[in-house]
C-alpha cells in the first residue's frame, strides 16, 4: 500500500468499494446492521469510547451510509480500538451489533494483510503462535516479569519453580508449563485440519508471513510425529 506525505494511505476508490461490498456480502451483515436511531446509547455504554477515539454509533452510521469512503476511514486503527464486549449490541434498541460489524471489518483487514493490521497485531504474535501451533492460548510460562512488569512484583511467583508448582495442581491435564493444558498431538492435528480447511492458516500468512513459517514448521513436526 502507498502512503502520502502525511502517512495517509493512498487507496483507489475501487478498492474501497470492494471492501464495502465484502462486508455487505458477509452472511452476518443483515443481522448486525438494522435500523439506527442515531440515539448514541451504544456509544454511551461503550467501554473503549472512554479511552479511545471510537464510537459504535459512528460505526453503524458509516455502515448505514453505504459510502465506501466513510467505511474505509475505519479500516486502519479505528476498528482495533473495540473491546469486543458487545455492550453495544445488548443495549441497542434496534439490536444492531456494532461489535459484530467490527468483527467483520477486522476479518477483512487481516485477510487482506493491511499494514495497519500487521502493525497492531505484531505484539500479539506470541499468542497467535501458541494458539495455532499448540491448541490453546495462554501458557503458564508466558507470565513472566519482563513481559508483565506492571502486574507487580508478585508476578515473579509464576516464573520460579514453575514446573513443581504446576505439578502441585491436582488436575493432571494442568501439570505442564508450556501449555494451559496438555493437548494430545492427535487433537492438535484435528485443529490443524480445521485451520487448513477454514482458511485460518492463510489468514495468518497474510498478516504475518514470518510467524506463519514458524507455525508451519511446528505443524509439520506434529503431523509427522
Amino acid at each position: 500500500m502507498e502512503y502520502d506525505e502525511n502517512g495517509v494511505s493512498i487507496v483507489p476508490a475501487e478498492l474501497k468499494k470492494e471492501i464495502f461490498e465484502e462486508a455487505r456480502k458477509d452472511f452476518r451483515y443483515e443481522e448486525y446492521v438494522r435500523g439506527c436511531l442515531n440515539c448514541g446509547v451504544c456509544t454511551g455504554g461503550c467501554p473503549p469510547h472512554r479511552f479511545f477515539d471510537f464510537s459504535p454509533r459512528i460505526v453503524l452510521q458509516k455502515m448505514k451510509s453505504k459510502d465506501p469512503e466513510l467505511i474505509w476511514t475505519m479500516m486502519d486503527e479505528y476498528v482495533w480500538a473495540c473491546f469486543q464486549c458487545f455492550t453495544c449490541a445488548m443495549i441497542c434498541p434496534f439490536l444492531n451489533s456494532p461489535g459484530g460489524v467490527i468483527a467483520i471489518l477486522r476479518e477483512i483487514a487481516v485477510r487482506r494483510g493491511f499494514e495497519s493490521a500487521k502493525k497492531v497485531l505484531k505484539p500479539y504474535s506470541r499468542v497467535l503462535l501458541k494458539l495455532t501451533a499448540y491448541g490453546n492460548q495462554l501458557s503458564p510460562d508466558m507470565i513472566q516479569p519482563d513481559f508483565f512488569p506492571d502486574w507487580g512484583p508478585h508476578i515473579g511467583y509464576a516464573s520460579t519453580d514453575l514446573a513443581v508448582k504446576r505439578k502441585a495442581i491436582p488436575m493432571p491435564t494442568l501439570q505442564v508449563t508450556n501449555l494451559a493444558w496438555d493437548v494430545a498431538p492427535e487433537t492438535m492435528k484435528e485443529l490443524y485440519d480445521i485451520f487448513d480447511e477454514a482458511g485460518v492458516f492463510k489468514i495468518i500468512e497474510a498478516v504475518d508471513p514470518s510467524l506463519y513459517e514458524i507455525i508451519q514448521d511446528i505443524v509439520d513436526d506434529v503431523r509427522s510425529s
Binding site: Q84, V127, G135, A198, G199
Partner: peptide
C-alpha cells in the same frame, strides 16, 4: 471427564486479532 482431547474454542484469539472466521 477432564482430558487432553480438547482444543481451545479459539474465540479469545478471534475477538483479539480477527484471525479466524465463522467457518473456523
Amino acid at each position: 471427564v477432564d482430558e487432553r482431547n480438547q482444543t481451545s474454542c479459539t474465540a479469545w484469539n478471534y475477538h483479539g486479532s480477527g484471525t479466524s472466521n465463522p467457518v473456523g
